[in-house]
């Protein structure tokens, strides 16, 4: 993902590269620009890697006549993270350990503590709400965690987007997902009839409570992840191992 081409340190120029043209304008210093172009063309095939919708980040650290050039497939986050190779929330958790502890404890309690809802069901709620919030990282990673719990294929991640067209889910979970979707829009959207629907499928008060809180919590997590502009790998496969770790080692695993 990130490749160090030539190492040296000190002052930094950061540029978000959207196309080859931008790269030429990185620095007005012509000789520097040519140098940069040669270095980058050695490692980047622009036609391949910079497609229309894909942003590239090239970071150039320079001092005197040497350079450290780092390019990454993903745009930089809105803030300078300590480790820019960590995707989604993981880079943020690493950046601010003081808040990470509570955030991870909350995820652990909501998704993995003892409950009459299985962890698989709770991860589905988390992934579904994240999908509705358009948060690719959370949707895919929690979808992968659900798949790990439920021992099913990663295609589950795509089926969540189709409102569980092919995955067999219980009428109770469907009623709870309906409540979660209302919470995602705004708390006031949850109507007494939504609650009645869930109760008719034998959802308990605690299950309704937990559903609302999981949905609300992911309205926080999703905003945290996207609001700071973190990057997210695209393919489902990139989340397989992460999902297994989330499911089986949990959120408070050593990092």
């Amino acid at each position: 993902m990130i490749r160090i081409i030539h190492r040296i340190s000190i002052s930094q120029t950061s540029v978000l590269v959207k196309n080859q043209q931008d790269l030429f304008q990185i620095n007005r210093n012509k000789s520097f620009c040519i140098f940069l172009r040669i270095l980058c063309s050695q490692f980047l095939t622009f036609q391949d890697k910079i497609s229309e919708n894909q942003n590239f980040t090239v970071r150039v650290f320079r001092a005197n006549d040497s350079f450290l050039i780092i390019y990454s497939k993903y745009p930089m986050a809105h803030i300078k993270l300590l480790n820019e190779e960590l995707p989604g929330i993981t880079g943020l958790l690493n950046y601010r350990p003081e808040t990470a502890k509570s955030l991870l404890n909350l995820a652990e309690t909501l998704l993995r503590s003892e409950s009459t809802l299985t962890s698989g069901e709770r991860e589905l709620i988390a992934s579904y709400v994240s999908h509705l919030n358009g948060c690719h990282f959370c949707h895919t990673s929690h979808g992968a965690a659900a798949a790990a719990h439920l021992q099913c294929d990663l295609d589950l991640i795509d089926d969540i987007k189709q409102n569980f067209a092919t995955t067999g889910i219980s009428p109770k979970l469907r009623a709870l997902l309906n409540i979660a979707a209302k919470v995602q829009k705004g708390g006031k959207n949850v109507l007494p009839e939504d609650i009645t629907l869930a109760r008719n499928e034998e959802a308990t008060d605690k299950e309704i409570h937990d559903t609302v809180l999981i949905a609300a919590a992911f309205c926080m997590f999703n905003r945290y992840v996207d609001g700071l502009g973190t990057f997210a790998p695209k393919e489902n496969e990139a989340y397989r191992q992460m999902g297994e770790m989330m499911a089986f080692a949990g959120y408070n695993r050593p990092r």
């Binding site: 708390g187 949850v190 609302v212 609300a216 926080m220 999703n222 945290y224």
Partner: peptide, 14 residues
């Protein structure tokens, strides 16, 4: 801001 999106939904959602 994210945290209060949680709180607000928690309070009104129930």
């Amino acid at each position: 801001a994210g945290l209060f999106c949680l709180y607000n939904r928690y309070v009104d959602g129930l």
